[in-house]
Design a binder for these strands. Structure first.
Length: 441
RNA sequence: GGCGCGUUCGUCUAGUGGUUAGGACACAGCCCUCUCAAGGCUGGUGCACGGGUUCGACUCCCGUACGCGCUGCCA
C-alpha cells in the first residue's frame, strides 16, 4: 500500500447504532489497526437535524462500548475536520464551484444535478471483484441530484467530497452502496481526484432473510448493552459474520484478529444474525471472567433489575454470586437465577410443585429438615455428607431429596449447586423455608 | 421492469478440479452429576436446479430459479 491507510465510519446520527453499522465500523477499525492506519469517525448529518449531538451520542456510546476508538473525529479532533457534515458547507460550496466551472452541473427545478459522462465505469472492489457498470443510458441511470433547492446537500456528493478531502484510502461500507459506487467514481473523476479503493461488505440479515432494521429486536447495539452482554463477545461474534480465521477458531482474541484480518478474505454472501451463537459465545467469555469482574457486573445487573441487595452484607452477596459464576451465559439471566437469595417471598414453580411436592416427599423433606437442623458447621461439605446420609437412611437416591429441597428453598427446579446455596443462605433461613414449603403440602 | 451482487448442513463458515465435504452454534442421544449449566462422547441433516468444459466437478463456463441491493431532491 503506497499511501497511508485512512478509513472511516460515516454513520448518520439516527439515535442508535445499528448492529450492521457496528460491524462496518469494526471492519474499518480492524483494517486500520492491521495496517497501522487511521480510523476516522465522520457524522453525516446533512439533513441538518437539530439534535445531532444527542442522536450521535448513541453511536459514540456503541463504538466506545465495543472499544472501537476512533483516531479522528468528534471529541478527538484531527487535521481534517470538522467531522460533522453540517459544519462543512464552505468545503462543499468550493467543490461545487469547481464542478460548475467545468460544466458538470445543471439546474433542474431549483435542484442541482451532476451531468454523467455516460460511460462504462469499472468498479474494482476488494471484496466483490471487478464489476462493469454501463451508465451510458440516461433512462436507466439518470443524472444524480447533488443539492436540493433549499441548499441542503445530497449524500452522494458530500460523501465523495469528504472522503476526498479527508484523504480516505479505503472505503469499507455496506454492500447496499455497491450500486452507487460507479456514480461516486464519476464524481471523483470530475473533481480531478483518484477514487479510493472500495470494499463492499455483505449485509447482515434477520433469521427470516430480511434486512435487519431498527424495529427488529437485537438490531441495535444498545440492546446488548442493556442486557449485560460482554462487549468482547459481541465484537468477537461480529467478526465472525462475513469473516473467518479459517482455522476453525470461534473465540478469538481481538489482537489475533487484528493481526490476521484483511479485506481480501471476506465472505461475499450475506450473513444471517444468529442470536443463539452470540449467546453461546457470550457464555464463553462470561465463564472466564475473574471473580471480581463477575461480581462487579453481577451487582450492577441486580441493581438495575431492582433487586435489593443492599440489605445484605457484602460477604453474603459475594458468596451468593460466586455460586452463579460459570452458570449463566448472559447477565440478564442472573436476576431470575439468583433472586431467591435476596427475598423470602418465594413462589414455587408450578411444574416443580406437581413433580416434587408430593405426599411421599413430605416425609422426606421433613427428614431433610431434621437432618440439616442437626448440623452445627453449616458448610457445603457437611451439608453434602448429611444429605447423602439422609438419602441412604430413607433408601432413596440423593436426587430424590435434592429436588424437593431445592424447590422448597429456591422456588425453582434449576439453580446453583444445592449444597453451596444452602451454605450461603445459612441454616436459619434454610430451615424456615423448608418449614414454609412443608406447610403448603 | 432495468442494472448489480449472491446461493456449501436450520444458522455462521472451511473448502479454489480428485476430500469419507471439515469446524462451530442449534438440535437429539449417551456419559458425568445434587438440579440447571459446563465438560466429554456419539448422531442426523448440506454443495439451489439444468446444461456444458473435463478422465474427473462443490470448485470453471452458460442458463434458470430464488434471495438481497440499487434504480430518491434518504443515508
Amino acid at each position: 500500500m503506497s499511501s497511508p491507510v485512512r478509513v472511516r465510519f460515516a454513520p448518520s446520527p439516527t439515535g442508535y447504532l445499528h448492529i450492521g453499522g457496528a460491524r462496518t465500523a469494526l471492519f474499518n477499525w480492524l483494517f486500520a489497526r492491521h495496517y497501522g492506519g487511521t480510523f476516522v469517525l465522520r457524522v453525516e448529518d446533512t439533513d441538518q437535524s437539530r439534535n445531532t449531538e444527542e442522536a450521535a451520542a448513541a453511536i459514540y456510546e456503541g463504538l466506545r462500548w465495543l472499544e472501537l476508538q476512533w483516531d479522528e473525529g468528534p471529541h478527538v479532533g484531527g487535521d481534517f475536520g470538522p467531522y460533522f457534515q453540517s459544519q462543512r458547507n464552505d468545503i462543499y460550496e468550493r467543490h461545487l464551484k469547481k464542478l460548475q466551472n467545468a460544466d458538470h452541473i445543471f439546474e433542474d427545478k431549483g435542484a442541482l444535478r451532476f451531468r454523467s459522462p455516460r460511460e462504462h465505469v469499472i468498479v474494482d472492489d476488494l471484496v466483490a471483484g471487478k464489476i462493469d457498470f454501463d451508465l451510458s443510458n440516461e433512462q436507466t441511470h439518470p443524472d444524480m441530484t447533488i443539492r436540493r433547492p433549499d441548499g441542503s446537500w445530497i449524500f452522494h456528493f458530500v460523501n465523495v467530497v469528504d472522503d476526498m478531502e479527508m484523504k480516505i484510502s479505503h472505503v469499507i461500507r455496506g454492500e447496499d452502496h455497491l450500486s452507487n459506487t460507479p456514480k461516486h467514481i464519476e464524481l471523483y473523476r470530475a473533481l480531478g481526484a483518484e477514487p479510493p479503493q472500495f470494499a463492499h461488505i455483505p449485509l447482515i440479515l434477520n433469521r427470516d432473510g430480511s434486512k435487519m432494521s431498527k424495529r427488529d429486536q437485537g438490531a441495535s447495539v444498545d440492546y446488548y448493552i442493556k442486557r449485560g452482554y460482554l462487549p468482547e463477545a459481541v465484537r468477537n461474534y461480529l467478526c465472525l459474520l462475513g469473516w473467518s480465521p479459517k482455522d476453525n477458531r470461534e473465540k478469538i482474541d481481538i489482537d489475533d484478529i487484528v493481526r490476521i484480518f484483511d479485506l481480501n478474505n471476506l465472505v461475499r454472501s450475506h450473513a444471517t444474525f444468529d442470536p443463539d451463537k452470540l449467546h453461546w459465545l457470550n457464555g464463553e467469555y462470561a465463564h472466564e471472567l475473574s471473580d471480581s469482574e463477575f461480581y462487579d457486573r453481577a451487582v450492577a445487573t441486580l441493581r438495575s433489575a431492582g433487586i435489593n441487595i443492599d440489605n445484605y452484607s457484602t460477604e453474603y452477596v459475594r458468596a451468593a454470586l460466586q455460586t452463579c459464576k460459570g452458570k449463566i451465559n448472559t447477565f440478564d439471566e442472573l436476576p431470575a437465577y439468583c433472586g431467591f437469595y435476596f427475598t423470602d417471598d418465594l413462589s414455587y414453580n408450578p411444574d416443580g410443585v406437581a413433580k416434587h411436592f408430593t405426599p411421599e416427599n413430605k416425609s422426606r423433606l421433613e427428614a431433610v429438615r431434621d437432618a440439616l437442623g442437626q448440623i452445627d458447621n453449616f458448610t457445603a461439605n457437611e451439608i453434602e455428607t448429611i444429605m447423602k446420609a439422609t438419602a441412604a437412611k430413607l433408601g432413596v437416591k440423593v436426587g430424590a431429596i435434592v429436588h424437593p429441597s431445592r424447590l422448597a428453598v429456591t422456588g425453582s427446579n434449576a439453580g446453583p449447586s444445592l449444597y453451596h446455596l444452602l451454605e450461603v443462605l445459612g441454616k436459619k433461613k434454610v430451615l424456615t423455608r423448608i418449614d414454609r414449603a412443608l406447610s403448603t403440602f
